[in-house]
Design a protein around this nucleic acid. Structure first.
Lengths: 188, 188
DNA sequence: TAGGTTTACCTAGAGGTACTAGGCAAATGA
DNA sequence: TCATTTGCCTAGTACCTCTAGGTAAACCTA
């Protein structure tokens, strides 16, 4: 019987695409096996278990998102950079909801230590060079920025903003404006 | 055989407690049935299905959180109110991680229409009366506030802030300070 | 309080998912 | 060409969701 040519990377890629279609929580080893036309038991020689698969998707998505953010950030500074950063973040979440959800799972310490998430912190620190912030304010600002962007995207995806006629796009623009003026005049 | 005296409310309560112990995603109908010493099939005369159970936990938790926030908000205004609001929010998430996770699921339109989530918006609008904000800025501010608080709590729970020595508590205090000064000087 | 009605819980079973053990055959390389 | 590796298999366990249909406990109501 012909082999399907499955590798861990192909599985991760397919899992990411599946996540965008059906939601990260609905990505199953069985569904993935069906997609490749093999039995689910066959996948366990490529991935350790379902958690391992999810972690791989998370790490890959974090890297993908960081690449995108880095590209958008290049050549920009100050408010332009902040807007590009925020839009890149939200754009990725809109385009790849499953992968975005994957980036939000808690990674076990040794996986996190591979620097999958650290790159995002570094990019954010680079962004903050356009503002006059130094430690420990810089770390506080990184955390606040991540919180607000993730929170907005997360609530928007959950449909929390649907109940009011005010445009979600307009609120987003104002939120980024507000963050800009906040970073510019960081309270002492 | 003696009856266990199960009702939908008792199931919801037990599911909420179970969620806090093992995580909202790990709450199963089977585990709940074991907890009451009955067969899992027996629960389906009280709840429609697993999704229904999760929704009930979400609605109950939203109400519980709103009660707590309302109590903390009483008699306070301005920055004191904002701090109480934020701390109530984060405190609930820390004390009841499973229930907090439940409040973040997307409710189907008719469930949401029961006003489970609207109360939070109303409480936030009440809080903003201490600041000088009117529509549409008020809605933008409500969304920003929710985003930042939820984002912070969510990232903190996911362990995203562990990688840096700066205290999570200190950053939280500064984040609330920052939100206060932002609301005070909302950009035009 | 005896009757019938309601309903709380049951057994049985189908179907989905995660995962392990052990086997065979296709691909690899000496 | 033969040995080794390895990709995919079958078989089987365990847990989860949910349905259909049955029995007995609890509850009216006459």
């Amino acid at each position: 019987m012909a082999r399907a040519g499955i590798t861990a990377d192909r599985l991760t890629q397919a899992a990411a695409e599946l996540a965008d279609q059906v939601g990260f929580d609905n990505v199953t080893v069985s569904a993935l096996a069906r997609h490749f036309g093999v039995k689910d038991a066959s996948l366990y020689s490529h991935i350790r278990n379902a958690h391992d698969l999810r972690t791989r998707v998370a790490v890959q998505s974090l890297a993908e998102l960081a690449d995108r953010v880095a590209a958008e950030l290049a050549g920009r500074s100050g408010k332009q950079a902040l807007r590009a950063f925020a839009d890149a973040y939200r754009g990725y979440a809109k385009q790849h909801p499953g992968r975005y959800a994957a980036t939000r799972i808690a990674l076990d310490p040794d996986t996190a230590a591979t620097g999958a998430a650290e790159r995002h912190t570094e990019l954010t620190r680079a962004l903050l060079r356009g503002y006059d912030l130094w430690e420990p304010d810089q770390t506080d600002a990184v955390r606040l920025l991540h919180s607000t962007l993730h929170g907005y995207v997360s609530l928007e995806q959950a449909g929390a903003f649907h109940s009011h006629p005010r445009g979600v796009e307009a609120s987003w623009t104002r939120a980024v404006d507000a963050l800009d003026s906040l970073l510019r005049a960081w309270p002492a």
